[in-house]
Every structure is written in structure tokens, then in C-alpha cells.
């Protein structure tokens, strides 16, 4: 039940981000929408590793298979760590590009280039 709730909120974040990327014109807003989408994806990944009543995957007591292992899945959390760092890198780079774009066009939107003619 909780898992479904997490997944539902993850999907609503993903769709919000998708909507922003598709409809916004301002590049900074597109970037923000991408970050919302990324948060949604990260939440989805983590919630797919959630089990009801599961503890954080740090062994604070001795555990044994016979008594049942009561942890949430650690692998999605490791994947999300990677994904967060990647998101940070792309955001930094995208901001640089937007800044560069702004310096040459005085606009934070895509402009039509007429270099070809």
C-alpha cells in the first residue's frame, strides 16, 4: 500500500516534469522541469526497492536468513546515488550552456538562427 503511494507520487512528479519540458519556452524552466522529472525518477527507483516495514540497509545487529531479513532493497538506493551525481553534473553543464546562450543572444529561449541565408 505504501509502496503504491510512493509510486503514485513518483509518477505525478515525472509527469509534471514531462509537462514542463514539453510546454515551457524558458530554458531555465525547462531545466527545472528536467530536475523535477529526475526527482520523480529517483523516487520511483527507491520506492520500487521499498518493502513494508523494511529497515535502512545498515547492519546494526546480527542478522540471519532463518529469522527473516527485514531490510529495504539497498541496490536501488545505490543506483539513485549514482543518478543524483549524474543529475548534478548535467545541471551544472546545462546552466553553463544557458549562460553562454544568454551572453550571445540576450535571451533565455531558443532563438531562430538565420545564419544559413
Amino acid at each position: 500500500m505504501e509502496t503504491m503511494l510512493f509510486i503514485l507520487s513518483a509518477f505525478s512528479l515525472i509527469l509534471t516534469g514531462l509537462f514542463g519540458v514539453l510546454t515551457r519556452k524558458n530554458l531555465v524552466k525547462i531545466l527545472l522541469s528536467l530536475n523535477i522529472l529526475e526527482t520523480g525518477i529517483n523516487l520511483l527507483v527507491v520506492s520500487l526497492g521499498y518493502f513494508k516495514g523494511g529497515k535502512a540497509p545498515i547492519l546494526t545487529n546480527s542478522v540471519s536468513a532463518a529469522q527473516g531479513i527485514n531490510f529495504v532493497d539497498p541496490l536501488p538506493q545505490a543506483l539513485v546515488l549514482t543518478s543524483i551525481v549524474i543529475g548534478l553534473s548535467t545541471t551544472a553543464l546545462a546552466l553553463t550552456l544557458i549562460l553562454k546562450h544568454f551572453r550571445s543572444h540576450q535571451a533565455v529561449e531558443f532563438v531562430k538562427l538565420e545564419v544559413n541565408e
Partner: peptide, 15 residues
């Protein structure tokens, strides 16, 4: 503005 360095192509690709 049109002829200057422009990262527009790169930005589209990135998004």
C-alpha cells in the same frame, strides 16, 4: 547575435 558562438545545438541535444 546570429553569428556569435552559440551553444543552442548543444542545449537542444542536452535536453
Amino acid at each position: 547575435p546570429q553569428g556569435a558562438q552559440s551553444p543552442q545545438g548543444a542545449l537542444k541535444y542536452l535536453i
